[in-house]
Design a protein around this nucleic acid. Structure first.
Lengths: 227, 227
DNA sequence: CAGACGTTTCGGCGTGCGCCGCACGATTCC
DNA sequence: GGAATCGTGCGGCGCACGCCGAAACGTCTG
């Protein structure tokens, strides 16, 4: 059957080192010009262009022209979660280098996964919100009335998140913690509020996230999380 | 960072047509000998052997020796869901052939996804169970007390499903319907009960599933589903 | 309008890998 | 024991693809 064909196309799209770098960079949900991506992966502009063409053909990445730049971004949240899921199985492989484990540890603390928070911070938040009755069922996160009120009080645009066509809550498997964390429209709304309120700051480039002192106070005070 | 390296390894593992056939065949959760897989993919035994070695190295597939056979199977449920997620993005690509759309339609009605039901049947069941109060929240399925009682009455081993380390409920994105269906330990328990009770029968080889007349009666009578 | 910059397209080169046939080890059956 | 079957390892062949440099296109700037 020819579904295999499609699977090979998507698999092959991820098979080249340069393309894997691209996808990992775009996992934070940003859109970046071709040149920057190529420089990050250590290949010439022409090579980067070809690779990006492959990713677009495979449906993993979209391209938007703006002026003389072309901004590339992941095609959507489901692409991000598919890549994360793939990374999750890849992560069970034996560790290959020390750098990797250091890097993994740093990102494992807190990071962006496309448009929501991931890592130990995200897992701790889910635990706190479940214990506090904001979310139901640790395995299948659903928003409660208490939670809607609580998030609203934090300044999260709960109503906007509910209105979109996208599922309100969604679970995403963490490739470092091998635990579930909050994704979906609500996950995105929470994450953007955390950034907007200055509780966390995104690392200049990449997916890393640092908790600010204001954020530390909130986490400790509201939910007893030591970050 | 060298997580890219792992991603390429998993991606490359899926990049070869023969290996994609293997993985798709194993998506139904069965373990199959190397020879059978090779024949199905239309390659020689030696080629199949090499491919299976690659899949094992990539952590996607496990190998178990039994007698003079070696049985290969998917490494676990998370591999299955990762592959399904990947198939889901692949599915949004333009249709390439008529055969594909026919095949897709047949599998789209009802099929096995590793160890649980998928396809239009599974989506309809989730709708019915949510409407009936057996599961909470269409986006983030969680088992209610009513649901536990109901499934128990159907003969589903609910208690066994809850006891395992595996999450009781889990959602899985359908690559045909682009809707969520029930996965996790409960999803597996339900599926095995459906087969055991003779409500559905699995196609001799592959993931296809046919609803029996007894199954049709149950679906229509209990939940008003026309199958 | 020329010039700079970002990006894509096009040959061309080299490596990697998917395929095979054949040979060999392991296991089962007679 | 020998024969048959299942599986793996090893050369070898050929294509596909990742990489580059050079050239062309489009866009912004002076």
């Amino acid at each position: 059957m020819s579904r295999d064909r499609d699977l090979t196309r998507v698999g092959a799209a991820l098979a080249a080192p340069a393309r894997a770098v691209f996808v990992n960079l775009l996992l934070d949900g940003t859109a970046r010009p071709a040149g920057e991506l190529g420089r990050a992966a250590g290949v010439r502009a022409s090579t980067a262009s070809e690779h990006l063409g492959v990713l677009v053909d495979a449906g993993l990445v979209t391209c938007e022209k703006r002026g003389r730049h072309r901004y590339y971004a992941l095609a959507g949240p489901d692409v991000a979660s598919a890549v994360e899921a793939l990374g999750s199985v890849a992560d069970s492989l034996p560790v290959t280098s020390l750098r990797r484990s250091r890097e993994a540890h740093r990102l494992g603390a807190a990071r962006f996964c496309y448009d929501h928070l991931a890592g130990r911070l995200a897992v701790a938040l889910v635990d706190a919100w479940t214990d506090g009755g904001w979310l139901r069922d640790r395995d299948a996160l659903a928003l409660t009335d208490t939670g809607a009120a609580g998030f609203r009080e934090l300044g999260v645009d709960v109503d906007g998140a509910v209105r979109t066509r996208r599922p309100t809550t969604r679970v995403c498997l963490d490739w470092t913690e091998r635990r579930l964390h909050l994704s979906g429209a609500l996950g995105a709304a929470v994450a953007s509020r955390f950034v907007e309120a200055g509780w966390v700051t995104r690392h200049a480039s990449g997916r890393g996230v640092a908790v600010t002192s204001a954020g530390r106070d909130l986490l400790q005070g509201a939910w007893g999380i030591a970050a």
